[in-house]
């Protein structure tokens, strides 16, 4: 694998209270391993992973695989590192917001983290995926799934119940975030391309359905 041999560099950032499992979730995703010992993250860290993204077109066809270089930033949840970690919010394109299903306070702090994101992220409505971690500790569960799903719907973000111990839903959560980012980047670029008249005249056209494809045909106008 050559170092610069990828199509996109995508940066995600994991945030949440201290001890919810941010480092373990990223470690499980990149290496497929779990370390039950808790080692608090010092300031900031990142992991890398090379994935292939296949967009599902609106008509069901699978596009050509695109090589993504993921840079997964891991932040310290402790208060004393807050000024350092929020400086890195600005560089991230997508966010994994984690809380601990066995710790209700970490769930209540999700609102505060979303406020921090709205303040420090690159735009007012960044793409976020909410993760309730430690789903394998069923007997110690303190947050009901309905409560978490209700909060996620309120903010309009996807919700996954993950487990860094056994790897449940971790790939799905990150792939969902990647899918949101890929759709958003094409939407941002194509927004300035579609003339407004064409969009109005064609009622079925939607910017959400635009995708990259090279088509050559006869002149339509």
């Amino acid at each position: 694998m050559s170092d610069g041999d990828y199509d996109y560099l995508i940066k995600f950032l994991a945030l949440g209270d201290s001890g919810v499992g941010k480092t373990s979730v990223l470690y499980q995703y990149t290496d497929g391993k779990f370390n039950s010992k808790f080692i608090t993250t010092v300031g900031i860290d990142f992991r890398e992973k090379r994935v292939v993204y296949r967009a599902n077109g609106p008509d069901g066809t699978v596009g050509r695989g695109q090589r993504i270089h993921l840079q997964l930033w891991d932040t310290a949840g402790q208060e004393r590192f807050r000024s350092l970690t929020t400086a890195f919010f600005r560089d991230a394109m997508g966010f994994l917001l984690l809380f601990d299903l066995t710790n209700e306070q970490s769930f209540l702090n999700v609102r505060n983290w979303i406020s921090q994101l709205q303040m420090h992220a690159y735009c007012e409505n960044p793409d976020i995926v909410l993760c309730g971690n430690k789903s394998d500790l069923e007997d110690q569960r303190a947050v009901k799934e309905e409560e978490a799903r209700e909060l996620a719907e309120k903010y309009g973000i996807p919700y996954f119940e993950t487990s860094a111990a056994n790897g449940t839903n971790i790939s799905q959560a990150i792939e969902m975030l990647l899918d949101l980012i890929m759709k958003r980047m094409e939407r941002c670029v194509d927004k300035s391309w579609i003339p407004e008249g064409v969009v109005r005249s064609n009622g079925h056209t939607s910017t959400d359905q635009l995708s990259e494809e090279k088509e050559k045909g006869l002149c339509g106008c």
């Binding site: 635009l210 050559k216 006869l218 106008c221």
Partner: peptide, 22 residues
């Protein structure tokens, strides 16, 4: 006509250089 690129399901198009710029 050979140097035009259409977006799928739309009539909007740009030339090959503008498409590459995108």
């Amino acid at each position: 006509s050979e140097c035009r690129v259409f977006l799928r399901k739309t009539h909007a198009w740009k030339c090959t250089v503008c498409f590459e710029d995108r």
